[in-house]
Computed example of a mutant assay.
Amino acid sequence: MLPPARPEEVTDLPEDIALLHHFANTEDLRGFVAHGQRLTAHDVLATPADLERWLREHDLLGPGEPVGDAHLARAHALRAALRDALRQDGEAGEVLLDFPWQVKLTALGAQPVVCGDPVTTALARIVVAALTVTANGTWHRLKMCPASDCQWVFYDRSRPGRARWCSPLLCGNRMKTQAYRRRGATQTP
């Protein structure tokens, strides 16, 4: 089975998890061969037009809203912070993201509201998704593959929630084989 070419090819994810998964994987660092198909690293959000298209495809932005370089820089910072937080190696630090928040109080409770232009508000919906999955206890199921030539963000569907690799048959096998070869090379007299 080939790995997904696009994050949107991964289906059956909870709504907020899907948004985070799709956004984090707009930076695709995979650079290996899988079943004869070469995966090459690329950035889906390379230009403001790319960001505009992605936000529209994910129903976060309406038509006619201009997306500029500052928005793209904010999106890249948000994505980097999200990916750092999802690393399994424990090297993620704390990141403060600058969004203009207010809190709306109603009879149903408190709700964060972003006070900004439509693009900033669209990006803030990704932050709200991260807060939601943290609050509902599903954040720990969203992980980044530790293979240096992969780093694909995946949703851990395993029962105990301890999956390490995005694909045990691809990345897991590749990394274990490399470790085995390194051990063999150092043990040879």
Rank of each mutant, 00 (worst) to 15 (best):
R182I: 02
S167R: 07
P63E: 14
H71C: 05
Q88P: 03
E91P: 01
V95Q: 15
P160E: 10
G116K: 08
L123W: 07
N136E: 15
P118M: 12
D156N: 08
P48Q: 06
T138Y: 08
V95S: 14
L82N: 02
E57Y: 06
Q88F: 00
A85G: 15
T177H: 11
A129G: 07
L61S: 03
D59Y: 10
D43V: 09
V119H: 02
L72G: 02
G172P: 05
A124R: 04
R181C: 04
L105H: 14
Y155V: 02
D89S: 09
A179E: 09
G64A: 11
F154W: 10
M144Y: 00
D98V: 08
T138G: 00
R53I: 03
G62T: 12
A122W: 03
R87I: 03
N173S: 14
P66A: 13
Y155D: 06
L123D: 04
G36H: 11
R159E: 14
H42A: 12
L82S: 03
H58W: 09
D149K: 05
P48L: 07
L123C: 07
R74D: 08
V153K: 02
L142C: 01
Y180D: 02
L72V: 05
Q151I: 02
L45I: 05
D156G: 05
L45K: 07
L123Q: 01
A70E: 15
G116P: 00
L51W: 01
H76L: 10
T132E: 15
E65Y: 09
D98A: 14
V133Y: 04
V113Y: 00
A80Q: 13
P160S: 13
V119T: 14
V95R: 15
Y180K: 11
G64F: 11
P118L: 11
E65P: 04
A46V: 06
R38T: 13
L108G: 14
L142W: 05
G64T: 07
L131R: 00
R162T: 14
V103N: 03
R174A: 09
L60S: 05
R79T: 08
L55P: 04
E91V: 12
Y155M: 09
A130C: 09
W54C: 04
C145F: 01
M175K: 04
N173M: 10
S148D: 13
A110K: 10
A70S: 14
I126L: 11
A77W: 00
Q151V: 03
A70I: 01
